[in-house]
Simulated scan of single mutants.
Amino acid sequence: MPTARLVTLLGTAVRQQRHLRQLTQCELAELAGVSQAAVTRIERGERAPSIPVLERLLAAMDVQLVVGVEPLDAHLDARIDDLAARPIAERVDELGLNGMLDRLGDFPQVITGSTAALLQGAPVPVEALEIALRWQDSKRFTRWLEAAYGQRWNARWGEFGGVWLEPEEPGEHRWSTRYGEVRATMCDDLPETIEVRHGGRGYRVVPLVELELTEPRAGELLRRYRDRQLASGG
């Protein structure tokens, strides 16, 4: 299991148990003898808790950690099944997609990756707004990132910050901003799109067939979903 996913799962478990007991982060921190800042970072998946700290947090809520194993990526199949049962509008709202698009302004960009797949009805996990941008608009995008307090993903440190914002600089095209995370595919010309509509709003998206050919992660998720449909006779 990748470390980043494990940290996220542990943080989610702590947050869910705290909500079930109607505790604030401050109250849980006091019960467990840790700082509220530590609880916040753990729940957000920003910090891997030590085993003693994790045990104290859980014990303060009268639960304990149980370790098990499962087939690799079994969690992904369960996640896809869960998303398939949820309305697209609910998932769009959860992502904060409309607000982020409004904040981006009017420079040319189209929706791609898993975000485009979501808008076309595919129940694939979406972690960030994914867009395609032209290299010629990169300076405008950099100015937007500066105004949005953007930080670029630092693969060496495994966190955001500490590297240049500009897309021209080496590194993944992935930024955290005050409005949410944005991932970009930089290109000379924007890809062909289709329009889909939800809630009276139109979105320019890369078609599913093109996503499978050009977006490795989104393509993998789409093929996984299709294979599960075929296996179940859907």
Rank of each mutant, 00 (worst) to 15 (best):
E27S: 13
E195T: 15
A128G: 02
G171F: 04
T112I: 12
L213K: 14
V110S: 11
V126F: 04
V14F: 00
D102W: 15
V63P: 02
V34Y: 06
L118V: 08
E195P: 05
N154S: 11
A29M: 05
R228V: 00
A231G: 04
P123R: 00
Y225A: 14
D73N: 13
A128C: 14
D189L: 14
R47P: 03
R134P: 08
T214D: 02
A132N: 04
L54T: 05
V7K: 06
Q120L: 10
C26A: 14
L211Q: 04
Y149M: 08
A132Q: 03
R44G: 12
Q36I: 06
I131N: 02
S50A: 04
P49F: 00
E90F: 14
V182Q: 02
E127K: 02
R41D: 07
G200A: 05
Q36A: 06
L165A: 14
E130G: 12
L119C: 01
G96N: 10
R140S: 04
C26Q: 15
R197Y: 04
G105M: 12
L145D: 00
V67K: 06
A116G: 09
V92D: 07
T115I: 11
A32T: 09
P71D: 11
I111Y: 10
R226T: 07
H198K: 08
T12I: 06
A122G: 10
G233R: 01
W164E: 14
P167D: 09
S114Q: 09
